[in-house]
Write a protein that binds this DNA or RNA. Sequence first.
DNA 1: AAATAATGTGTCGCTATGACGCAAATATAC
DNA 2: GTATATTTGCGTCATAGCGACACATTATTT
Lengths: 249, 249
Amino acid sequence: MTLADANDYCPGISLDCVIFGFHEGRLKVLLNKFSRYTKWMLPGGFIYKDEHVDAAATRTLVNRTGLSDVYLRQFYLFGDVNRTNMDENEDMLIRQGFSKDDEGVSKWFLQRFFSIGYYAFVEYGKVEAHSAMDEEVAWFGLDHIPPLYTDHNHIIDKAIATIRSQLNSIPIGYELLPEKFTLTQLRIIYETLLDTKLDRRNFQRKILSTGLVYKSDEVYKKWGQKSSALYSFDKDKYQDAIKNGISIF
Amino acid sequence: MTLADANDYCPGISLDCVIFGFHEGRLKVLLNKFSRYTKWMLPGGFIYKDEHVDAAATRTLVNRTGLSDVYLRQFYLFGDVNRTNMDENEDMLIRQGFSKDDEGVSKWFLQRFFSIGYYAFVEYGKVEAHSAMDEEVAWFGLDHIPPLYTDHNHIIDKAIATIRSQLNSIPIGYELLPEKFTLTQLRIIYETLLDTKLDRRNFQRKILSTGLVYKSDEVYKKWGQKSSALYSFDKDKYQDAIKNGISIF
DNA sequence: AAATAATGTGTCGCTATGACGCAAATATAC
DNA sequence: GTATATTTGCGTCATAGCGACACATTATTT
């Protein structure tokens, strides 16, 4: 944000997006970092005074990924008094070249913030990780997330816990995978989020029995040992399933 | 609230509680109403500047029901720009005897509000519906909820939808029912929230197979035709089940 | 005395599920 | 070149759980 805009935003409230992608057999999240600050953070933003919260989240996502029309859901409001660490914020401001005596900057950043958590599923290959002015953007595997700004590690954990509990009714594969994918890739997503191993054969039977997925004529050869079949989602059936509530697991 | 306190609260954000109780075979929600205003509303409040959001919700609940130590969960942030209807708010203020020219009152109430939705399960019999100064408090069956203040009908709907989707992992019976209860009472709760009829015999088999419930020596006679057995929750097993994630349905 | 309504205790058949077997295709090791 | 490991495709089999339903029992209503 440009600090001049501060008056256009709702005070004391921000939003943070946990953006999931799937690449090289791993679930990853998109993080960014102010170039002169040490800590990575979730892509986030503020809400214009006349803007719907969901619209603000969509705007944040478009800015960072170039993608609109993405599966994006609000999942929790983080309202701990101590989640905003004033010392940490001051440190960040100074490193970014601001003076803490600057009234406008201090008043805006050195206050208590609520943060609205959103999670998003994007197709990794379609993302063009936009770096804003003085920002870096990068993907991090779930196992390799560094200590983040304020409670952002906690926000990611909560997002994963939420997704896990809703896995039955979330079209997660459809959103994360490319049009053609192997059932192993789909299984890895579920295994990662559920933190268990799933029997390969039983998983296939269950997925195929939903009828939401059909075998394409193409084959995936690059990887591993034996070439594997590529599948696609039946988009119509998928839309129906979401409306009427799907139950995969 | 006393309006003099406005400066102690976080601006632009409020919270609303959907408080569920079970009485006479029906699920009900607790609503209140300013005596001189026409519309009923969800019990709600504001958040002190140094107060955790959950603490503010607990405080609201204690005020209205006299109950602490209640199952209370945040479920959604309502952030539509138009959810706060300024005309409606002004009407309410005037009916309550305030002048719209009163700077303090207007500035506080005639602004955009976010609202954090909480739902709670309470034991109906333990509630002493406290009426504050000029408030009425009453229970309403889910089928008989009148048009409420702003988007409060929508908030209730969203609460029910959320609970419904989490019914597997929520200890709803334990929280809503008295210590001894019949399995029919428990079944009605599930039937109401799922909006379906459940086969009485299959339901019993399933509930008993969880081992979370045991038959007490007492019998419930008052109602219906045949006296029915009273059951209780095994509290230890219940605590374990919540920790490790229960799955009832 | 008959009708109504709710409860306790089952049965029965089907399906989904979890556990596992085995051959085929590819890569790496010796 | 042969052996070994890994991953895929396509199965089997026994069991637990589930939906549907039967029937006697108890109590209230008419």
